[in-house]
Design a protein around this nucleic acid. Structure first.
Lengths: 340, 340
DNA sequence: TTGTAGGCGTTATCAA
DNA sequence: TTGATAACGCCTACAA
C-alpha cells in the first residue's frame, strides 16, 4: 500500500536518485524519463515520505503558530478565526502545512519556541500578540529562525512584520466620536502591554490633541473582557462597578473600544444601564455586522494581513528577504455611533 | 546551538543509546545516569529531532484535521473555533501537535488523506462533517489509519466516533415549539447530505408525529446560509424570495434552525419582514448568548466532544480501542422562542 | 544497566 | 542525463 522511493525506482527501472529528482529538480530530467516516472507515481499515488525528506533536506514544509497560554480562548476570537483561515489557505496552496498549538504553561514564553526549534519540526513561525521587549523575537532572531510577526514593537527594524495602522485607527475612531459631539471619551479594553493597544491609545491621544481635548488618564480603562463577553455576557456586569461609576460620574459621552468584542460587551452593559452613547469598535469582524446595533468600527483587512504574513513567511523560508508592511485601516460607520 | 543526541552523548560520556533511552525508556536507566543526563539536557535545552525520531520509530506525535474545501469559511464558524481550541489544548497536553488544513481543491475528497498517509507525516486524523457513504472513512479504514470522527453515519459500527444526540436535539427543539403553540414549523438550513442534518430532521419528524402533526416536505428548507449570514447579513434577503413566500403563504408559526448561525440569519430576515415567530437554534455557541434576542437553542457540549475526540484519538494511536460515544444535548430556553 | 551496529526513506555529492 | 553512495538524527535489536 504505502510505497517508497525504492519501490518506485525498481518499478520504473530508474535509480532512487532519479525518482527523487523528479520531485526536486524535474528540470534536470529528460522529458521521456519524467513521463515514465509520472505514470508510475500516479498509478501508485506515491508521495515522498515527508519525515525522511525533512530529515535529509532540512525543508519540512511545516510552520507553526504558537498561541499564548493566556489567550486560551484566543481561538474563539473572531479575529483569529478569520486570520487563521486565510493563513491555512495561502500556505496549503504551497503545500505547506500549519501546526497550531499553545505555549506550554509552566515555562517562559519562548521556551515552547525553543523546544520547537530543537525538535527541528518546522521551517518557520508566525508570531502573534506582540509585546515590547518580546522574548520570543529575541530568541528567534538569536536562533536565526524564519518568522513573521503580526503587529510590531519599537525594535521593529530587525524582523519582518505585517501590521495595520493602529495609530491611524485609534485616531479615526476617536475623531469620529469627537465629530459626533463627544468630548469625554472612554478608551476601553486591551492590555496596555500589548503593542496594538498602545498604538491605538496613541491614536486616541492624537485625536484628542488635534481637537484640543485634554487627555485624562482615568478615561483609559484597559483589561481583557473577551472571555467575559464571549462566555457570560450577562452575569458579570456587577463586577464592573468601578466602570459604571466612571461612566456615570464622569458623564462619559462616547467610547472607543479596542476591539469589536470589547465594544459589544460594553454596549451590553450600557443597555443594561439604560445609557445611550456612541461606541466605536475595532477590527470589523463579522460580529460587527450581526450584532444589533451594528457596529461602527475600524476595519482592518484581516484576510489581507493573513495572506501577506503567510506569503512573507514562505519568502523567508525560500531565503528571500521580504519587506515589512503596514496596511491601511478604514472607518466603517454603522449604527452604534449614531445615537439619536 | 542546535544539539543532537551524539553531542549530548559525548558530553555526558554515555552512548547515544543511553541518551535515547532517557527519553523513551527512562525506567531502564539507573537513577544516577538519569540525573546526569537530565542535567546536561536541561543545560543545552536538548529535545530530540522529531523528524528523525518519527522516521525511525513511526510515532510522529502529529495529527491532522483536514477541512472540506466547501467549508472554506468553516474556520470562522463558531463551532469549529471552540472545537479546535479544545482539541489543541487536549492534544498539546500530550505533546501531540495538530496540523489543520484544507482538502486540495481539484481532487476527490479522500485524495488529500491519501497524500497525507503516503507522506507519512501524522499518526492519525480527526474527521469532521460526516456524510453517508463517506469516501474518507472507507479510505482510512482500508489503510488501517488511526482516526476518530465527529458525528457518524449509518455504517457507524466499524470506526470510532463521538457524536451528540442529534435526533433527540431535533426532537427537543421541535417539541418545544409545539408546546409554544406552533403547528406549522419550518425546518431551516443544513445540507440534507450531512448526517447531522439528517438526524436533526429525523428528530423534528419524531416530534411532529408524537404531537399528531402531519409532516410536510415543503416545510423543509435546507441550504448553507452561514457564509451569507456571517459575511453579508443584510444584503441578501432578496435572494430568498421563495423562502419569504413560503413563510407568508404557509403562515409558518415557528422555526427550528439547524444551527445557531442559521437561526440568527433567519431571525434577521424575519425582523426585516416584521414577522415575529419563535425560532430555536442548535449548538449554543457564544453568539447565541450575545445576539439579541438571545437564542433558545439545543446545547451540545462542544468542548466535551472535542476533548473526547482528542482523547480517543490518542488512545487509538497508542494501540487501544476506544469506544464510540454519544453525548447528551439539552434545550436552553432564552428569548428567541418567547415571542409575546 | 549500558553499548554496538544497522537502518528508517530521502536527498546531496560526486562520478560516469 | 543518470547512478552509486553517504549522510541526515534517531531508535531498536542484539550483545556485553
Amino acid at each position: 500500500m504505502k510505497t517508497n522511493i525504492k519501490e518506485i525506482a525498481k518499478i520504473t527501472g530508474f535509480s532512487t536518485t532519479t525518482i527523487s529528482r523528479y520531485f526536486n529538480h524535474p528540470e534536470k530530467l529528460s522529458e521521456k524519463t519524467g513521463r515514465k516516472i509520472k505514470a508510475v507515481i500516479t498509478k501508485y499515488g506515491f508521495v515522498p515520505n515527508e519525515l525522511a525528506r525533512g530529515l535529509r533536506s532540512k525543508r519540512k514544509n511545516l510552520v507553526a503558530i504558537i498561541l499564548k497560554k493566556e489567550h486560551e480562548s484566543f481561538l474563539s476570537f473572531p479575529y483569529f478565526s478569520v486570520f487563521s483561515n486565510q493563513v491555512l489557505k495561502t500556505l496549503s496552496g504551497e503545500k505547506i502545512y500549519t501546526i497550531t498549538t499553545f505555549e506550554e504553561s509552566d515555562k517562559k514564553p519562548h521556551m515552547t519556541y525553543r523546544s520547537f526549534v530543537q525538535k527541528n519540526l518546522v521551517d518557520g513561525f508566525i508570531v502573534m500578540g506582540m509585546a515590547e521587549n518580546d522574548k520570543r523575537i529575541k530568541f528567534l532572531l538569536d536562533q536565526n529562525e524564519n518568522f513573521v510577526t503580526v503587529g510590531r514593537n519599537h525594535s521593529s527594524d530587525n524582523y519582518t512584520w505585517v501590521d495595520c495602522d493602529n495609530v491611524q485607527g485609534g485616531f479615526l475612531a476617536t475623531n469620529h466620536l469627537v465629530k459626533k459631539g463627544c468630548q469625554r471619551i472612554l478608551f476601553f479594553g486591551g492590555f496596555l502591554e500589548s503593542c496594538d493597544t498602545k498604538m491605538r491609545l496613541q491614536g486616541y491621544r492624537n485625536a484628542l490633541e488635534e481637537n484640543n481635548i485634554k487627555f485624562r488618564r482615568n478615561y483609559v480603562y484597559p483589561g481583557d473582557f473577551t472571555g467575559m463577553i464571549m462566555q457570560n455576557p450577562e452575569d458579570n456586569f456587577e463586577r464592573f462597578a468601578d466602570l459604571k461609576t466612571l461612566i456615570i460620574n464622569q458623564r462619559i459621552e462616547g467610547v472607543f473600544a479596542v476591539s469589536d468584542v470589547a465594544a459589544i460587551g460594553l454596549i451590553k452593559m450600557l443597555k443594561h444601564m439604560k445609557i445611550k452613547i456612541p461606541v466605536v469598535g475595532f477590527d470589523d469582524v463579522s460580529l460587527a455586522r450581526i450584532y444589533e446595533p451594528t457596529l461602527t468600527t475600524i476595519r482592518q483587512p484581516i484576510e489581507k494581513i493573513a495572506e501577506k504574513v503567510a506569503t512573507k513567511l514562505i519568502q523567508k523560508i525560500n531565503g528571500e528577504s521580504p519587506q515589512s508592511e503596514m496596511v491601511k485601516v478604514e472607518l466603517i460607520e454603522r449604527e452604534s455611533s449614531n445615537i439619536s
